[in-house]
Design a binder for these strands. Structure first.
Lengths: 246, 246
DNA sequence: GTTCATTTGTACGTATGTATA
DNA sequence: GTATACATACGTACAAATGAA
């Protein structure tokens, strides 16, 4: 197989497309070896430099992994869906958030009742800035996630920036108040969708929700923010990779 | 400023370190311009190729962003917060497993059909040792989890030890074969319980399942084992703590 | 256990294309 | 329109890790 001369894509992108397609079709099965850079260079009639640029792209998509001396192996048959969260660091949470639109529906200061206090931590009667909104994928009117964030009133000043600046709320807290987040606790649950949420997310009444709740704590272990994200289960999966210390 | 000759790091990494440090110290403020590739090349006395490799690294960390014709601008003042999974070793993943009984129901070598191959990775027709079982809490006859493990046939010898020795399957693989697990990928999904699983777990037909799938890979990125755990959602939540690296 | 061919990683040089200001 | 700066793409060479002989 050769590259298509009348294509106006860059060469390396054509190589990416060709290899991605072949991986998806099973020509190079998961766990199998890709041809060496030299072989690919010869086959596509491009320089090794161009092949390496293509492989760099595939690696950054998580499709293949290369090891010096051992070649390049296929890690996955296709790129993870856009709804998949890949978590290796908290940074990945932000990048994920950056790619989708966030629309704030309500923003108000509330006092926690007993149920909420138990749910997010803190004491009954404590005041929180509650920000509720929906997240949308580009060019799609169906929301992919419902988000309710509770911000400690000490940091309520972030309220006017949320939805404007395209950064995570915890980053706003760090920027505005200089208070560093030291620890994030993440809890995952699943349940049948409550009626009110089904309406907002345009789901069937018997749909399943995955809830990802993140509690952000400062170095003093004070809760700065609690973010509750509700995803339709059929459009969500959470992936994380754990590497052994070397 | 020049690079340090007695350093044993790759040149491009030294450039990364130098620029990262300068960005952090405010020499190049957020929103400001980095010197051009040509200038950096001259200043560090390295080729433009090496400078580009360094900038590629900074870009992938989200510190800078480049636009053709317009130069490279600083996007963030510091490396995006490096949080790490508090899970110290992969071992902590299955720590909970020790406290609950595991009963193997079936253990057999199977050939993966297309669906299974797509699901766990690997190619259609590939042979796997399939171990199916249920987990019980102490003093409770209702199972808390259904587990299906697929072990690469290279490590099929672990089959006779599973359920006898009270250790994780991946540990058995390491012990018996000396093959080290380097990486574990964990994927979480939720869905309505399939009929056959509902029966095994004694669940209502409309119950919700949380599935935690772990793929264990060797240093060569070969899949050694895939473990699929299915929990009733109402009895399950997954918590993890991410802590900022100091 | 050592050697050796293979394969990716690092690093240099050069040239041209294309978006930006 | 012109100069600038990054993007793409060719070439070469050697280093380092891997795995098999």
């Amino acid at each position: 197989m050769r590259l298509n001369p009348p294509s106006f894509k860059p060469l390396y992108q054509q190589v990416v497309d060709a290899l991605r397609d072949e991986i998806l079709r099973g020509k190079y099965p998961v766990g199998g070896q890709l041809p060496t850079e030299g072989e690919l260079s010869e086959r596509f009639s491009v320089s090794r430099h161009t092949v390496r640029e293509a492989l760099r792209n595939l690696r950054s998509d998580g499709l293949v992994s290369s090891r010096q001396g051992a070649g390049t192996t296929v890690a996955r048959p296709s790129a993870p869906s856009t709804y998949v969260q890949e978590i290796e660091s908290i940074n990945d949470l932000i990048q994920y958030a950056a790619s989708i639109r966030y629309k704030v529906d309500r923003s108000e200061v509330i006092a926690a009742d007993a149920a909420l206090a138990a749910s997010i931590g803190g004491i009954s009667g404590q005041k929180w800035l509650r920000i509720e909104g929906l997240r949308y994928e580009d060019n799609n009117n169906k929301p992919v996630c419902r988000t309710v964030v509770y911000v400690h009133t000490d940091f309520a000043g972030v309220g006017r920036l949320v939805g404007r600046r395209n950064s995570a709320i915890y980053e706003l807290i760090e920027d505005l108040y200089g208070e560093k987040i030291a620890e994030v606790e993440q809890v995952i649950n699943a349940y049948r969708v409550p009626e009110v949420v089904a309406a907002e997310l345009a789901l069937e009444p018997d749909a399943v929700i995955v809830e990802v709740r993140r509690t952000y704590r400062t170095v003093a272990r004070k809760i700065a923010e609690v973010a509750v994200n509700q995803y339709p289960a059929d459009r969500f999966s959470l992936a994380m990779k754990l590497r052994r210390r070397t």
